[in-house]
Structures are given as structure tokens and as C-alpha cells.
Nucleic acid binder design. Structure first.
Lengths: 217, 217
DNA sequence: AAAATAGTGTCTGTGAGACAGTATCGC
DNA sequence: GCGATACTGTCTCACAGACACTATTTT
């Protein structure tokens, strides 16, 4: 039986943050190897002695680059091929992660607005595009956009985040009705946001987990 | 910088076929290596000299095992971990494939009804369960179930396939209305199925590609 | 004619968008 | 008071389920 060289296996993370009314992608300049000097998604190899699975690798990468531990992180898919990495036949298991509010740690991570990305290393531009399509698709039917917000938020902030992710305008009263009926969030009694003219009720997710709807937002 | 052994990378396929009113999974007895003698999903290693990417590997595996070339095949995800393969830290990129109608070639492939699976090798039972969840989820919002049917089918057959995949009962007239309005299928004029008391109009997909709906089936 | 399945027409409840109207704050 | 944003109430339209009804075949 013929044997084949093992493909290169890596893990990459599409790290997204909400800032200034748009989504920002976290990237790192490559220090060596192919595409040295260019920006790339944070990623790396599996550490077989400490990573239980590829998601653990992704979370470790996120932790190392941002010092953030609590993060929404899901597998996007695996991108592979003979030509995507000049070192040889490669596959990368890609995760996307949504960071709640602003991260504090100052690291080498550079942030780019998602709508004005520069050219990235490897096939990372295509990967980011696939991630955005997934996020948009899931945003329609789940509470995924809420994971871009801090733990407490107002109704307006939640709607605006959905509008940003879905790139559509949502009717305010219909949105409130739907979210209320689905029992997705609960008010934090006595807490109001004072960012706007009339203070707004603050809410939090009832269950801090991804949740699918049976109807469109 | 510490180096790590490369994880084992494989490709596996969840191969599904519609027969006798239920879904059947295609499995193969393992001839050697771990779990020898047990049934497992068809799969294998990437042939770096002939496979353009992991999907090409999956399609090659399907072709080798069933002699079927035209098949609906999508990536499910990558399953990984230190303990799922006794040979070491491993990752498998899993695809699910829906076979249209009955396949003809007689091969070593064994078929098991999806609701009465035996214990499979590795973590393949968990993988099959994940595939079924994906298929059910996509069935709600896409024409995915149609890929289990032959190229031509009746309205009843289409509805029954949706009912089977989604495990719910669908209202016949509402289903017809929705499918008609979405322009998903087109009648083949002059062709009728004669399997039932009153011959039924035969239809085919307007576009033989996966298509998402903006409303639930 | 009876049985069986295909296919149509219509009623009704529910949910969504639209939008007007009210509430509560800072200035 | 005025501007601004938060929040509520209500009208109307469209779609989904329910189900009765008609159509076309075999036996």
C-alpha cells in the first residue's frame, strides 16, 4: 500500500470584536516562515501534549494573544489544499470567536475593520469571508450577535448589533416583541444605561449560551 | 521553539441513502489497524498527489466505495482529540453525502438503518449523530432533503422525504404552496408517476444545487 | 361504485411591519 | 419647553395550518 506524506495541520482563528459601530478582525504580523511580514489570522500548530482537541488549540491561541478566557468560539470548517501553503499540502481547522465588548490587554494583535481588510497571508481573506457568511446566516436564527456585546446591554444596542451583523434594518417594535416572546433576555432590575437622553433598561442573556430560534429575527 | 508530532489526519464520510422509508448509513468493516473487524465510516488518508483538497478526498472515497460520481457532499466538521484514535492525537475531516435513490454497484459497503445503528469504530457514532443534527437543521431551511430523491419525484415523495428528515408531519396543502411559491421545482410536462392510484405529476429541481429558503418548510 | 391518492379552495389565527403615540431623561 | 431616545399600542396584511372539497386513476 502506497504511503503519503502527512499534510500540515494548523488551527486558525477568526477573531471578531465590535468597535465604533463595525466589526474588527484581529490579525498578527507573521514573524517567520511563508508570508513573513504579512498579516495573518492568529493560529498555530496543535500542541499534542496540552490540547485536548482542536477547539482547545483555538482557545489556547486566543488566550495567548488576547488574555481573554471567556469567549464564544465555534468551528467554522477546515480549509485545505495542495497550494494554500508553500510548505506543502496543508489543512487548517478554522474557528471563529466573538469577543464581548472591548478587550483590555495590549498585545501584538492588530485590528482591521472587516469591511476594509488588507490582503492577508495564505487563503485567509477567503476564510474571513466564509466566517462572515456563517455569522450572518447564524445571526438570522440565533442569539449569536449578542456575544459581541458586553454582558449587559440595552434593547437598542442589541438591535443595532443584529442590524450590523445582518446588514439590514430591523423594525424596533417588532424586534422587541420577538425578543421578548422568545424569552431570550431578562432585565436587570434597577439598572439603566445613561448613555442616551432617556436612560434605557439594561438586559442580560437569560442563558449565556448559543440558542437557535424557530423564526427569523 | 518546541516541536510537536504531527497529528494523524484522516477524512471520513457519512454516506446516507433513502430506502424503505428511512435513512440508511453506509459503513465498512475495518480490515486492519485499530478497531479491526468493527464497522466504521468509509474514509481514509489524503492522497497528497491526487487530492486537490479534503473534499476531493471525500469524493474519491465515495467513488471508490460506491462507484457514484454525482453526489451531494458537504463538510460537516472536523473531529479531533488525543484519545479518539489509539494510534495517537488525530483529527478527521468529516463530510456528509446524500445519495440520490438507489445505488447500483455492489460493493463491500454495508447499510444500516440510521435509527438502529450498531456500535461503530472510533467516535463514529457521535459523528453520525452530529451529521443527523446538521441534516435536520439544514432540512428546515433548504432543499437538502431533495438530494435524497432521484432526479424526478412527485410532490408526495418530496413531502415524505422532508417529513422523514425533519421527523415532523407537514400539512400537504401548505407544503405545496410553499414549494410552489419558492419556485424550487418544476413539473416535467407529460410525465406522471404511476405508482399510486391516481398518477402524480413528476417534478425535478429547477436548480440542481443546494438552496436556502428565507422561511421554514 | 368504491378505494386510494393527487391536488385545490377557503377559513381563520398568528405574527410581522408600519407607524402613531406616550414616557422620561438632559438641557 | 424642546430635543432626543426609550418604549407601547394598534392597524393591517401576509402566511401557515386545518380541513373540506374535487379530480383521476385502479379494482
Amino acid at each position: 500500500m502506497k504511503t503519503y506524506p502527512a499534510p500540515i495541520l494548523t488551527i486558525d482563528v477568526v477573531l471578531l470584536e465590535l468597535r465604533q459601530g463595525t466589526l474588527w478582525l484581529g490579525v498578527l504580523p507573521r514573524e517567520d516562515g511563508p508570508f513573513s511580514g504579512e498579516y495573518a489570522l492568529p493560529g498555530g500548530f496543535v500542541h499534542t501534549d496540552e490540547d485536548a482537541d482542536t477547539k482547545a488549540t483555538a482557545l489556547r491561541v486566543i488566550r495567548e494573544k488576547t488574555e481573554i478566557v471567556d469567549v464564544f468560539c465555534e468551528q467554522l470548517g477546515t480549509f485545505s489544499g495542495a497550494n494554500r501553503d508553500p510548505r506543502g499540502w496543508s489543512a487548517t481547522v478554522v474557528y471563529y470567536a466573538l469577543i464581548r465588548g472591548k478587550h483590555t490587554a495590549e498585545t501584538a494583535l492588530t485590528w482591521m475593520p472587516i469591511d476594509a481588510l488588507k490582503t492577508l497571508a495564505f487563503d485567509h481573506n477567503a476564510i474571513v469571508q466564509a466566517a462572515m457568511e456563517r455569522i450572518r446566516a447564524k445571526g438570522n436564527w440565533s442569539n449569536l450577535p449578542a456575544f459581541l456585546l458586553p454582558a449587559t446591554f440595552t434593547f437598542s444596542e442589541l438591535r443595532q448589533t443584529y442590524e450590523l451583523v445582518l446588514k439590514i434594518n430591523l423594525n424596533d417594535s417588532a424586534f422587541r416583541r420577538k425578543i421578548e416572546e422568545m424569552g431570550l433576555i431578562e432585565p436587570i432590575v434597577g439598572q439603566k444605561s445613561k448613555l442616551t437622553a432617556r436612560p434605557a433598561q439594561l438586559f442580560k442573556l437569560k442563558r449565556d449560551a448559543i440558542l437557535s430560534f424557530d423564526r427569523r429575527i
